[in-house]
Computed example of a mutant assay.
Amino acid sequence: MNGIIYRLTTKDLAVLETMLMRRRAFADALVPIIERKLAESSVVPVGTVEPDIATLNSRVIFRVGDGQAETRTLMWGDTSAPVGSGLPVGTWRGLCLLGIRAGQSVLAERPDGSGQRILLEDVAYQPEAARRAARAAGQRRHGLRLVYSAAADHWPLGEAGKIRQTEGDDPGPSAA
Rank of each mutant, 00 (worst) to 15 (best):
A102E: 08
A136M: 03
R59Y: 03
R131N: 13
L16Q: 04
M1L: 11
E40S: 07
P45R: 08
A25I: 04
G158T: 11
T91N: 07
E128Y: 14
T166I: 02
D112M: 10
Q104H: 02
W76V: 15
P111A: 10
G84S: 00
T91L: 06
H142S: 09
D12V: 14
S41E: 09
Q139W: 15
C96A: 14
R101K: 04
L95N: 09
L119G: 08
L97K: 02
E50M: 01
R132C: 13
F62M: 13
S105I: 01
N2G: 07
C96R: 02
N57M: 13
L120I: 07
G65E: 15
V89W: 01
G113F: 00
W155G: 03
L120D: 11
A130P: 00
E121G: 13
V83P: 09
E121D: 15
A29I: 07
R24W: 01
T55I: 09
I118F: 14
A137K: 08
P171D: 03
P51L: 02
R59P: 01
A81E: 10
A176I: 12
Q68T: 13
P111R: 10
G103L: 02
Q126K: 11
G65V: 09
G84N: 06
A81N: 03
T18F: 02
V83S: 10
G113N: 03
Q165P: 02
Y148N: 09
I4E: 00
R132M: 14
L38N: 01
A150W: 12
A81V: 01
G161V: 02
R24P: 06
R117Q: 13
P127F: 09
